[in-house]
Amino acid sequence: MAKEIYTKYKMAKYLRKEALPTALCPGCGGGTVLNAFANAIDQLKIDPKDLVVVSGIGCSAWIASPYFLADTLHTTHGRAIAFATGVKVGLPDKKVVVISGDGDLAGIGGNHLIHAARRNIDITVILVNNFIYGMTGGQVAPTTPFGAKTTTTPYRNIEHPLNIAEVVAEAGASYVARWTTAHVYQLIESIKKALTVKGFSLVEVISQCPVQFGRRNKMKEPAEMLRWFLKNSIPISKAKKMSPEELEGKFVIGEFVNRQRPEFTEELNKLIDEVAEHFGLGDE
């Protein structure tokens, strides 16, 4: 039975009302991300009919699935980008967006992430990085800060977090940016850019999980986590002048790359045209 939703919230038109309320915990940063994404779509006047949203498994995979009212493909753990590759090739004129978490996209799915960036396929990835596996109960992720406590590093994390934005930029993406949920306007602008850039785009959003991460790291309240983000965010221009030691424990925010590179589906279709021409199979 569909529940009646009474709201003046403008972006509600982009949501599947029968699926609400979302299953996100109070204080989760996922809502901010969903809001930013809806605003970006609204501002760009993209018809949701021209959108396919793909996600994997985990809390952040639930941000848009099934709540965003578009074609939504909720897939297996880590594989969202590989599924999205098939969707994009089949529907090269649509916007294909992957919204999922750090464990999903950079942990188990890290390989698909770097390969999609290498191919520079025209997919927009919004990677919600909350430093933790939230849904399964707060285990360490490849993004967990050095020294943080999780249920599988009860004596604090000894591994270094993967610098997702840098690795993806190195792998060949057209557009890479990183913001936190405390930088909503910049985030909306970056999502807009990512959606317009031709080629692989990644917007990493550092987001709060007060329940699984904050609680174990002395930040029980969402506001405490947002303050932590704000206090430690360093704009990329400033970060370039800082030493690795100075950058320890900081979040570098801003645009990492924004460039034109050959795009996968375009190159693929170009190749098909060339083959057709070569064999005399073109449209007669």
Binding site: Y133, M135, T151
Partner: peptide, 27 residues
Amino acid sequence: PITPASEIFEAMALYMPLVDGVSIQME
């Protein structure tokens, strides 16, 4: 991590270093 087996891992993470064993989370 995976539901409903994560509790095994969490217990191992707690115990292993104490008995000089290794508990490691893979990708």
